[in-house]
Amino acid sequence: MLLWINGPFGVGKTQTAHELSRRLPGSVICDPEQVGFGMHRMMPPALRGDFQDLPAWRQGVFEVLDRVLTGQDGPVLAPMTVIEPGNFRETVGRLRERGHDVRHFTLLAERETILRRLRERGLGHAVRVVAGRAAPLRGETFAVSRLDLCLERLATPEFAEHIHTDRIDVAGVADRIADSAGLALAPNTDGPLRGRLRRAWTGVRHIRFF
């Protein structure tokens, strides 16, 4: 089974995928973004754009996930923002046509909620402490520039199932996804402090410097 976790940049897809992975024995995270980053590394900066516009990205994601789903017994977790219907059909749609059990979820939240999460993820919280709460989201320019479009596109029925996360923590979002997919999660034994530290470490590990 593939759990594709969609949503605007900064809504909490990666955190949710890691929470699911932690509590789903035998699961594996396959991040489609890594295919795009590999392509960007092969190109000079002036030629880089949205890697989802490259047919090779869509084909590569399909082939990798098809291979993993064929050889992996446990759930496969793919946290990835996809807002173009054509790209969605060439990835999620083709995997379904291939016969794989694909469960798609879109995490949504109010605009201000996502902006707050962008400020707090990775090194953002440290920057806020030093520069003040109103410090601009310099490292999140792309995420902010695409936020309104993401919210508009992903709210449509094509991108269901929708989960509104404004008042749900990461563990709660993972619970909802697992319940909808018919999967049993291990109990969440994290206390508030341990959970915050775990999420902070996940955020630091996924800071992008390129």
Rank of each mutant, 00 (worst) to 15 (best):
P187I: 05
R128E: 12
R176Y: 03
H40C: 04
D179V: 14
L149G: 10
R96G: 08
G195I: 02
D73I: 12
V11D: 00
H104T: 01
A200F: 12
L137H: 04
V68S: 04
A160S: 13
A181N: 09
Q72V: 13
T106Y: 00
Q72C: 11
I168A: 12
A160M: 01
R153W: 01
E120I: 00
V82D: 03
R94M: 06
G71I: 14
G12C: 00
T70E: 14
R89F: 11
R67N: 14
E161M: 09
L137N: 04
R208K: 12
V76T: 06
E33S: 03
L2K: 07
S27W: 06
V61C: 06
G26A: 00
S27M: 07
L3K: 05
P25H: 01
E63Y: 10
R89Q: 15
W57E: 04
L197H: 09
R98D: 05
E120Q: 13
L137I: 09
G36C: 03
Q15K: 12
L54Q: 10
P8W: 01
R176F: 01
L151W: 07
F209G: 07
S21E: 15
G132N: 06
A131Y: 14
V92M: 02
A143S: 14
Q15S: 12
L147N: 07
V129N: 00
L24T: 08
V92W: 02
S27E: 02
P8D: 10
R48E: 03
A126P: 07
M42T: 13
P25C: 02
R23H: 01
E110Q: 15
P157E: 09
G26Q: 09
W57T: 05
A17Y: 07
A46N: 11
E110L: 11
E33M: 08
G93Y: 09
G182F: 01
E19S: 08
G36T: 03
G26E: 05
R121G: 03
Q34R: 15
R146I: 07
A109C: 07
L154P: 00
R103F: 09
G86E: 15
G12N: 04
K13E: 07
I163W: 06
R208H: 10
G195D: 14
C150M: 01
C150F: 08
A135L: 06
L65V: 04
L115A: 00
